[in-house]
Design a protein around this nucleic acid. Structure first.
Length: 454
RNA sequence: GGCCACGUGGCGGAGUGGUUACGCAGCGGAUUGCAAAUCCGUGUACGGGGGUUCGAUUCCCUCCGUGGCCUCCA
């Protein structure tokens, strides 16, 4: 079966053919580590983790290279470092911010069931590559130095704007680009800029300074994946200007006319029907959600929508997700198996159609091994059934009291005193206990199990 | 202002030019002393208005609504 992926460059589901099937290469824009990641950040992490797993399934675990960067040079980091660690030297303050948020990020994505990418490069460890790329761009006539800055010469690239599908005229109509005396053209963007006092600085041929906002991804993908690679992913908001500029930098530096063959973008996330924002008070970090929900519930909930569509994160939806996972754990939780059902692989191979894949999962209730293998391909069913069951909030009822009432009720039922039996059940229901009567399959003895109403 | 998405049954959410995915809830039945759980069955929806077509939810136009990008942003 063929794998088809929606490509932002062509606006179509293209058949995916790797440049080198022995080394399929994917780059995804990771977080800027200035604050704890929010649930919107989690979407590309989960979506592209599923793609990573699917590619490994198709091409072999050893034949996929997944690079997800960590941006640790950024104005917001500087601002936060100065705010939170006013007593520390700048570099130490920055390290304090980035190491803490990076560690939290790694914990978060692990709890969301994401595999570790092959490489997680940090921007600050690739300054030399960035400078090398900028020098190539200058030498090729695609960039120029001015007043300690180096700028990308946008008019030097005739098809600039092809990813975002907008013309230079359209962009200028917005008229919200920075105007600066050292710019030759209003659309030119910064590759390198001088550091202001209180900002981190690196030596460069243009004087001490720091990189612009887009060069790091061009440099890191080059270093770890080569001059061209297969897939570049990220949130849809990154299409312009970030990815457009990355593409411009890499294609102009290397002259291949292509940076990545396939560009993939996930849609935005809303919370209870509203845009997530700090001012609305509905800004949810992954960490906060993990206090109330298992990571697998968040992950599964994310996969119930097509990755390109907008998704609305709601408590109702999360509750439903938990229930569905409960069912599947009940059927397949302790079943061995890593072989996914063909129907599920086919659904995922159609541009990562996870809702279709989930529909197929519902059809696998009578095939526990296939269900287990399919769920594991999606990064679900990661723990034993008992561990999963223990994730429900701890009981607040008196276990011994409940057990005593249950025993009393069984005695009443055996005596066919149904009035007493029902009275005892009412009492238990009032405690939030749900009873499930049955018979021991071997002895025929009446037995009753119970759980808390959810 | 410019550009771009999206609008599916009570809810969530796929998909398709013509046989009404799937899940949750609901309803009916089996089961149960009665329930719960489980199993079986059950839903003709595609924002409004035009157009193309033998036929449109699916294509085109338009209107309305929602969201996104154009500035850091997943």
């Amino acid at each position: 079966m063929t794998l088809r992926l929606f490509n932002t460059l062509t606006k179509a589901k293209d058949v995916f053919t790797p440049i080198d099937p022995a080394n399929v290469r994917m780059y995804v824009c990771g977080p800027t580590v200035y604050d704890f990641a929010h649930i919107g950040n989690a979407r590309p992490m989960i979506v592209f983790d599923v793609l990573f797993r699917l590619l490994r399934h198709r091409f072999g675990t050893a034949h996929v290279t997944y690079v997800r960067n960590i941006t640790d040079v950024d104005d917001k980091i500087n601002a936060r470092a100065a705010l939170e660690h006013p007593g520390l030297p700048l570099n130490e303050a920055i390290r304090a911010v980035t190491s803490l948020t990076e560690a939290q990020f790694r914990t978060d994505v692990a709890e969301l069931g994401c595999l570790e990418p092959t490489v997680q490069p940090r921007a600050t460890e690739h300054i030399a590559e960035m400078i090398a790329m900028i020098e190539r761009l200058v030498a090729a006539g695609h960039a120029y130095a001015a007043e300690g800055h180096v700028l990308f010469d946008v008019p030097s690239m005739p098809d600039y704007g092809k990813l975002a599908r907008r013309s230079l005229d359209d962009m200028l109509a917005g008229a919200r680009v920075d105007v600066a005396p050292y710019k030759q053209d209003a659309m030119d963007f910064v590759l390198w800029k001088p550091s202001k006092p209180g900002e981190p600085a690196w030596e460069s041929p243009w004087g001490p300074g720091r990189p612009g906002w887009h060069i790091e991804c061009s440099a890191m993908s080059w270093k770890h994946l080569g001059e061209t690679f297969d897939i570049h992913g990220g949130g849809i908001d990154l299409v312009f200007p970030h990815h457009e500029n990355e593409l411009a930098q890499s294609t102009c530096a290397f002259g291949h006319g292509v940076m990545a063959n396939v560009w993939m973008h996930n849609g935005f996330l809303q919370v209870e029907g509203e845009k997530m924002s700090k001012s609305l008070g509905n800004f949810l970090t992954i960490r906060q959600l993990l206090d109330d929900w298992p990571g697998e519930v968040l992950r599964f909930n994310m996969l119930r929508s097509l990755y390109r569509q907008p998704i609305d994160f709601t408590v109702k939806g999360l509750e439903e997700s938990w229930r569905v996972l409960d069912d599947w754990y009940g059927i397949a939780g302790d079943v061995a198996g890593d072989v996914p059902a063909t129907t599920v692989v086919e659904a995922l191979s159609d541009d990562l159609n996870t809702p279709k894949a989930i529909a197929e999962l519902h059809g696998l209730k009578s095939d526990p091994a296939g269900l287990a293998g399919s769920l594991r391909l999606l990064g679900l069913l990661a723990e034993p059934k008992a561990d999963w069951a223990a994730r429900r909030p701890a009981s607040t009822v008196d276990q011994d009291h409940v057990a005593a009432l249950v025993a009393e009720r069984i005695a009443a039922r055996k005596a066919k005193d149904f009035a007493a039996s029902d009275r005892l059940r009412d009492e238990l229901v009032a405690l939030g206990v749900v009873l499930m009567d049955g018979k021991d399959p071997a002895t025929g003895e009446l037995i009753t199990t119970w759980e808390l109403k959810r």
